[in-house]
Write a protein that binds this DNA or RNA. Structure first.
Lengths: 104, 104
DNA sequence: ATAATATGCAGGTAAATACCTGCATGTCAA
DNA sequence: TTGACATGCAGGTATTTACCTGCATATTAT
């Protein structure tokens, strides 16, 4: 997994909106997705390319249409490998802060 | 929580590195953090300001030093409110894909 | 007091990013 | 086959971003 691509992809609100839309209804076409965004089709295409490069979205052609499917695996991997390690800190934060303020 | 600020903050590898450094040792000064980055102090300062604006880092002044503490709460909230909703999709993805390929 | 240290502030530049318009290609339906 | 439709491709621009240099301020130690 390319962690940087995943985080960069998630760093834009339009792309998170696209993932939201696919979460509501998976397998939407480019046109369908565009109806819910306030931007030109080409802009949406670029966002979808970034999501696809991050492996957050997979596509399948059906005739002249392109269907988009969400892939939640990278999200879960990001959580497993990156977010969880910080959760331990929640318990020790106040303790560390107090110690530091006391001059260690 | 400002979701956009959190995601934008996490979208940069230097800022994720800073969070990693704080995870290893909480409460580091700006100078300590800079020793582990290959960039000017002012650049690191800007990154830390972004992390602070996203509430991922809190700071405390001690004399002429500025101590930085990681705050994992926004990360956990991002996970709770945003990542979890996509996990359900993991089970239905293949099913949806198959249905779509068959022409629905 | 003064020198060293830690950080803050004010810009300036180059690259990345997000957006667009215009035209081309491929597919379906009448 | 021809017109309508869905998407692809090639640029162009304006904003944002990441980085820097130079100088200012505040704190500590001698």
């Amino acid at each position: 997994m390319d962690t940087d691509k995943v985080f960069k992809a998630l760093g834009d609100p339009t792309r998170r909106r696209l993932l939201d839309l696919l979460c509501e209804q998976n397998g939407q076409t480019l046109g369908q997705l565009c109806e819910n965004l306030e931007m030109a089709r080409q802009s949406a295409t670029q966002h979808l390319e970034i999501l696809e490069a991050a492996n957050l979205v997979s596509t399948v052609r059906r005739g002249r249409e392109k269907l988009h499917f969400i892939n939640p695996v990278p999200l879960h991997e990001v959580y497993e490998r990156w977010v969880r390690k910080f959760e331990r800190q929640r318990l020790t934060l106040l303790h560390d802060l107090k110690k530091e303020l006391e001059g260690e």
